[in-house]
Amino acid sequence: MATIVGGLAVSHVPAIGNAIANHREGEPYWKPFFDGFPAARAWLDRVKPDLAVVLYNDHGLNFFLDKLPTFAVGAAPEYCNADEGWGLPVLAPFAGDRDLSWHIIEHLVAQEFDLTTCQEMLVDHAFCIPMELFWPQGAPPPAVPVAINTVQHPLPSPRRCFRLGQAIGRAIETYDKDLKVVVIATGGLSHQLEGERAGFINRDFDQMCLEALATDPSPLTALSSLDLVEQAGSQGVELLMWIAMRGAMTGQVSRVHQHYHIPISNTAAALLVLENTPVA
């Protein structure tokens, strides 16, 4: 059976992609952010995942408001990046794993999650930048992208996203191949791009979230999506992916590494590495 080695969660601010493309990691503005990653890469070198499930939100590359799924699971042989309209370099395609995709889809629908399945799916910066950050030499493991709607309200609740993560975790554990899987969440932490509250950052709330994700996530699943908007900003609601990732940690969870830096662009940028040890 497959095992879940752990979870990674990281911000996906587009400017990070430009910083990588332009080799600016060592500059004073960027260094405090990039300094968080060697520890995460060292953990990945140790656990060596064979596959990744990536929970992210599409920002208007693959999905438009004409058809906008709450939860969408990729089932493609590969996932292409594409022009998002504001100058990020387009990355090479990412390998998928259709066997794991369909196993997860079968399991989730049996668990009463009514999904959209995507045999073609463009992946935007929210998928690509974390792959670049965690595997800077290229060659990330084959991935199954899972997109959660954070664009158009009503959004799924934190509890629903946690349960989605739990169901993904159980799906992985019942996958009949001896493979190691890492679950990656992207987005957050607190930030808001629009309106009179543009530039809103909430360090105290972010710190509470990081602590809850590492120890007891119940304070987060008690919140509504609008609570998240209020406390973390309208894009800080991307915490939904972090909460879903935590749900997929089915065993003993230990915090391997955490990093927090304000600001990257308009965002409180964070990184969390959780190790999952199966309970015998």
Binding site: G60, E84, G85, E194, A198, G199
Partner: peptide, 23 residues
């Protein structure tokens, strides 16, 4: 929607700090 408006802003050469300042 801000995610879509960001694409318009990109054409106009504005980044999210420019948008934040204006708003």
């Amino acid at each position: 929607n801000i995610y879509y408006l960001a694409k318009l802003a990109g054409i106009l050469g504005l980044n999210v700090q420019d948008l934040g300042a204006q708003q």
